[in-house]
Design a protein around this nucleic acid. Structure first.
Length: 206
DNA sequence: ACCCAGGTGGCCC
DNA sequence: GGGCCACATGGG
């Protein structure tokens, strides 16, 4: 067992099981609305608290606009208003529309988009304006159920704290985690969520 | 009244 | 390849 895998096991023990923060927006399995909420949430959460993202998602749901097709059709000004709580709302409205337009025009649904191989999906997401590696990988892992490890600020701090590597670039960290863990969607998701939880706990206990 | 939060892209050198 | 900046809201 690798050092990274051991760290995962110890976090699991410390918090007595996985922390599935996204479950609130994925109550039932793999429904269209769940996938959509997570995919849109990946853009909404850029440089923003998940709490504020939930306010925006709630507004979308209430307006019956929590679907790829509806966001694609929704008036831009209205969309901006609905997602306002998540901050950077003009930019994010544009990014959401860009993602939804791409899916609707080329695939009709997210399900059909995700039928493609992981590598192809990732390239296509990265080509969209406002979708960088973290956003793309979050969409792939949490909405698409694809085995790819998400690197974010918390993961980076975690790697630093445990001296896992010197090279903290996105690609290197992603390779490191993937090569030291079983290739498994659930492990990738749970580990990432535990890293975030642990960072927040230790911060509040100082 | 500050300060921060699960990024990205554009600009400059 | 790295450093700096804009983007904007809600909560401590």
């Amino acid at each position: 067992m690798t050092k990274i895998y051991k760290l995962y096991i110890s976090l699991l023990k410390k918090y007595r099981g996985p922390q599935e923060f996204w479950k609130k927006w994925c109550k039932t399995k793999k429904t269209r609305q769940d996938r959509t909420a997570i995919a849109l949430g990946a853009i909404l959460t850029q440089r923003t608290n998940w709490r504020n993202v939930e306010l925006a998602l709630k507004n979308l749901k209430k307006a019956r606009a929590l679907s790829i097709r509806k966001v694609h059709q929704t008036d831009r000004k209205l969309l901006e208003k609905l997602i306002k709580p998540s901050g950077f709302y003009r930019q994010k409205a544009e990014r959401l529309i860009g993602l939804c337009r791409f899916v609707v025009k080329n695939f009709k649904t997210l399900e059909k988009f995700f039928k493609q191989p992981l590598k192809i999906c990732r390239e296509q997401l990265l080509a969209l304006p406002g979708v960088g590696p973290e956003t793309a990988d979050s969409i792939l892992l949490y909405a698409g159920h694809k085995p790819i490890f998400v690197i974010d600020e918390y993961t980076r701090r975690f790697a630093k704290k445990h001296r896992l590597t010197e090279e903290l670039s996105y690609n290197n960290l992603q390779q490191l985690f993937q090569q030291n863990l079983p290739k498994n969607v659930k492990i990738y998701r749970d580990f990432h969520a535990l890293i975030v939880l642990d960072a927040k706990k230790s911060k509040s206990s100082i």
